[in-house]
């Protein structure tokens, strides 16, 4: 296991370094950030002067060397647009994205019992209704649902604020609900479908008949034996979803004014703000790798036959 972990870590470092190099060149190919800092009427002399001020007039390989050396030292430089250290911007938003992701993930987890309920009587009325429901919620576009939730829950019924952010403390909980609800249907639907499908698959296996023949109750069979064996697929899916949330939910964050990584990343890409893009991608890549590693470890706990050598 230890060797496996060391190997994974080595791979991760290699992947991140490669990713950063790719990022640097692709952003530089895509356009000049200085053009986006100034009004379009300014003269070419002004543009040239600003390019020199920020060092964009240096050869690409020199800039790449500086960029890489700074990144290795954990310094992502100062945001071209905000003039604030990129690391500070990203770490300021990371907890917000994580909280929104976790709340959404928690709501989405409700899909597991729903899927289990459907699996109890395949092709029964409940199963069919849950099928319709899960397909319907997966098909609802985030942005449309977000706007509908605002109009119904905030404007019509005044149950929650339309949007905004009020910290992650006790005062802020009601601001996270609408964005989380808007994000959760797809997760909920997918969880329900995967749980249902894997459980139905497991229910047809011999060990279930054996358990039933031993006289175990249906609930024990389902929750103690079947669910544990079905859990590998569910954990894989949920790990994937959680990793996805760490990227930030760009559209939802934008609509609700939630200060997360997704919106920051999109704004930075639009403005060719390389330091911020790099910092966001770096942090997100680390998170995704950490989540994948945790998922791998959970596999070994769920199924002792799995071992990493």
């Amino acid at each position: 296991m230890r060797n496996y972990m060391i190997r994974r870590l080595g791979h991760s470092i290699f992947i991140i370094l490669g990713l950063m190099a790719l990022l640097f060149f692709s952003i530089n190919v895509l356009g000049d950030p200085v053009e986006l800092l100034v009004e379009d009427e300014v003269s070419q002399e002004v543009i040239d002067a600003i390019r020199a001020k920020y060092g964009f007039d240096r050869p690409l390989h020199v800039r790449f060397g500086d960029f890489y050396w700074n990144m290795v030292r954990g310094d992502f430089d100062v945001s071209i647009r905000h003039k604030i250290p990129a690391r500070e911007l990203v770490f300021g938003r990371l907890p917000n994205t994580a909280v929104l992701g976790l709340v959404t993930w928690a709501i989405g987890s409700l899909g597991i019992p729903i899927g289990m309920l459907a699996a109890r009587r395949p092709r029964g009325l409940v199963d069919r209704l849950i099928n319709i429901f899960s397909f319907a919620v997966i098909s609802v576009p985030d942005f449309w649902l977000a706007l509908m939730l605002i109009l119904i829950l905030a404007v019509e019924f005044h149950l929650l604020p339309t949007s905004g952010f009020n910290g992650l403390g006790p005062e802020g909980w009601k601001y996270v609900l609408l964005p989380a609800i808007a994000l959760s249907p797809r997760v909920l639907g997918r969880n329900a479908q995967i749980t249902r499908a894997t459980m139905i698959d497991e229910l047809g296996k011999g060990y279930v008949s054996t358990a039933r023949a031993k006289g175990l109750g249906e609930t024990t069979v389902l929750y103690t034996h079947v669910l544990k064996n079905a859990a590998i697929s569910i954990v894989t899916l949920m790990g994937d979803e959680l990793a996805g949330f760490m990227n930030g939910a760009t559209i939802t964050e934008t609509i609700f004014g939630w200060p997360g990584l997704g919106k920051l990343l999109i704004d930075s890409i639009n403005n060719r703000d390389l330091p911020v893009i790099t910092a966001v991608v770096f942090v997100v890549a680390l998170m995704v790798m950490a989540i994948n590693l945790i998922v791998d470890l959970i596999y070994t706990w769920l199924d002792p036959r799995i071992s990493y050598k």
């Binding site: 605002i150 109009l151 905030a154 604020p161 339309t162 949007s163 609509i255 609700f256």
Partner: peptide, 14 residues
Amino acid sequence: YRSEATVRAAMVAT
């Protein structure tokens, strides 16, 4: 700051 006009209008309405 809110990017959607619908959200901005909703904020005044509420």
